[in-house]
Each structure stands twice: as C-alpha cells, then as structure tokens.
Amino acid sequence: APEAIPIKFSEKQQSSHYLYVREHKVREGTKSPWPPKRTLFVLNVPPYCTEECLLRLLSPCGPVQSVELQEKPELAESPKEPPSKFFHPKPVPGFQVAYVLFQKPGSVSAALALKGPLLVSTESHPVRSGVLKWIRDYTDSVPDPEALRVEVDAFMETYDRKIAEEEAKAKEEEGVPDEEDWVKVTRRGRRPVLPRTEAASLRVLERERRKRARKELLNFYAWQHRETKMEHIAQLRKKFEEDKQRIELMRAQRKFRPY
C-alpha cells in the first residue's frame, strides 16, 4: 500500500486530506515520460494545491526538477508540447494526480518518509481561494489580442509550410509505381476518382439499389398480390400486438379510470 501524507489547506483546518504517494513504476516494455527511479507518483492532490505548491512542499526532500498535475494517471507517452493558453485553457481542477520528478533518486524515499501534515497555504506563501481566486482568474482571462495574433500567425506559418511539403511530396510520387508496380490514384490526377469516404460509397450503393428497384414489377404476378395482402395483415397484426402491450401497460398504471 502506498504511503499517506496528511495535507491541509492551512493551520486553521481541523481535518486533513491524505496524499497517497509511491515511487513511479512502469511495466516492462512500456515507455514513460518520467524516469522510474527519480519520480514520485502522488494521488489525491486536493483542488487548491497547485504545481508550485507541491514543488514547495516537496523540495525539503531534495531538489525537484519538475511537477506535473494531471486529472488521471497517464499510462502512455503523450506529445509534450506546452498547450496554448488561448486554445487550451486550463480546466477547473478537481482532485488530481501528480508526477514529481526529483533531480536525485534518493529524494523519492525521503518524500515517502514525510510525516506532514503539509500546509498548502502559509503566511509566507499564501494561496488564494474563493472570491480572491476568481477575481484573479477573471483578470487573467481578459485576453491580450496582440499575443493571440502572434501565436496564430506563428502556428499558421508552420502549418502552411507542412502542407506545402506534403503536397510537394505527393506530386513527386504521382504516377510513380511502387516496387510491386502499383500506382496510387489520387484526386489530383487527370481523371479524378471518387473520394474514399464512407458517404461516397453509400451513395453509389444507393444509386444501384434504386436502379434495380425501378426495373422491378410490382403486383404483376398473382403471388405478388397474395404477398402484399399477407404483408398488410402482418403489419396489422404487429400493430395489434404493440397496441395490446400498450393497453396492458396503461391498465397497470390505471390509465383507464376517467375519475
């Protein structure tokens, strides 16, 4: 079982939450962005505890390289680009998990031995909550249009370059057979073909079906007549069964008592 470290918002609180900590481990063969020996895995981080806070609280155990708070434990490796603050604003935090990467392996065991209780907000490092926090959040959310513009331009420039490269590459490969002599047919060729989408193939099938239906003769043979009639009766029977069920239900709910 993991170690439990009590954590409180400040001195004033009576009872505390518990951080459940253990050394970060990964299964054989899986890759993890955090090196196993030096990373502390923390569960149940309270919503008011920020990354800076955790860094401050754990630095007595040894120098901390990075702290990352996440909603859920991350199993696979993910691309680590810093998310844009304009396009991916931080969600409202709940209880989170944290990966704390120390500079030295020994710090992990020191952290596991912490007794606490840890205090999130102290006089020297007050943490804002409630009204003060919301006012600060609101202030932060008032955007700077210039910064946004710069970011958008930079992104689009990279994007355009990427697209241009891809196109150039596609053009180069156009009509060139691969090693098994297959030629890739694209929409750009001289005779454009249907795009390979589900909708397009459904459309083709539908057109075929309609063509066939047009040629069919209805109520031509005697057996067709018979079948249509039978179909009608079957429909009525089905409806009748449905209705009976409905009535049964309504009766159970006493829906037939007009008083």
Partner: peptide, 17 residues
C-alpha cells in the same frame, strides 16, 4: 473523507461561503 470535504467546501468558496 467527509470531515475534510466539509472544510473544503468553506475553503473553495472563501469569501462567498
């Protein structure tokens, strides 16, 4: 952890609660 959660209610809404 109900006792701590009840205190959290007050902390998260400091000023409002």
């Amino acid at each position: 952890n109900v006792e701590a959660i009840l205190e959290d209610f007050a902390i998260l809404g400091e000023g409002l609660v």
